[in-house]
Design a protein around this nucleic acid. Sequence first.
DNA 1: TCAGTTGTTTATAT
DNA 2: AATATAAACAACTG
Length: 256
Amino acid sequence: MPELPDVEGFRRHWDRYAAGRRVERVEDVDASMLRETSPQALGRALGGRRLGRSRRHGKWLVCPAGGPALLLHFGMTGLLVSSEEEPERHAHDRFVLVLDRGELRYRNMRKLGAVRLAASEEEARAFLARLGPDWLDVSRERLDDLLSGRRGSLKAALMDQELAAGLGNLTADEALWQARLDPRRRVSSLSDGERSDLYRKIRKVLRDSIPHGLVPSKRTWLTGSREAGICPRCGAELSRTKVGGRTTVFCPEEQR
DNA sequence: TCAGTTGTTTATAT
DNA sequence: AATATAAACAACTG
């Protein structure tokens, strides 16, 4: 699931169920999810701390805890679950924050994500330093700077988190389909008008998805018709190939 | 049994 | 230096 809109949903989740509450203890930590820390260190750093409101950069969620901060990446199958929605813990919960009211769980079936502990805000920023700007902070002018000099395919550029952070396989396919651009196009071949259209469509896909906390399955969107294999606009059979190493769905009739 | 999966990192090749 | 590709990570689904 998790691309920018999903993580934006997790941010709201954290703020609703964890922000403002105190951590009693950390339980059931799966050490294999942790990067450069340990279950013991996590418990020591967070125990007794009052949690703050979270912020998102690309697909990362930064969760302040009154000095230290927890950095969460959700991979392909991660999510946050509160005991207020789901009383029972789950086999795929990789750690549990026991709070002064209820508990918040980080669940991740495939364990492709990562959990990091930053000692300070400064260290949290350092962890994310390699990422490009969050896509919601990219202006039309900035997009030209980011794309200038790129030689690869359009889709690979959009999914490159060091160019700009937050787009994933689904959002990239959706924006390219809405902009009627072939994902295999060279970045350098885009006209100014095409870049403008692409920019607007990326913003639209993100804006329309964020309230849902996921890329919605609308019948008028590519995402909603992936299974059917038919272009929702023209009825042509969709193509399925690999671009930038990822499964890519596009309309061969309309995307040029 | 085997391919496929909405993400990232690493190694290797170009 | 950038870019492309494949593999690895891990656990499940169809």
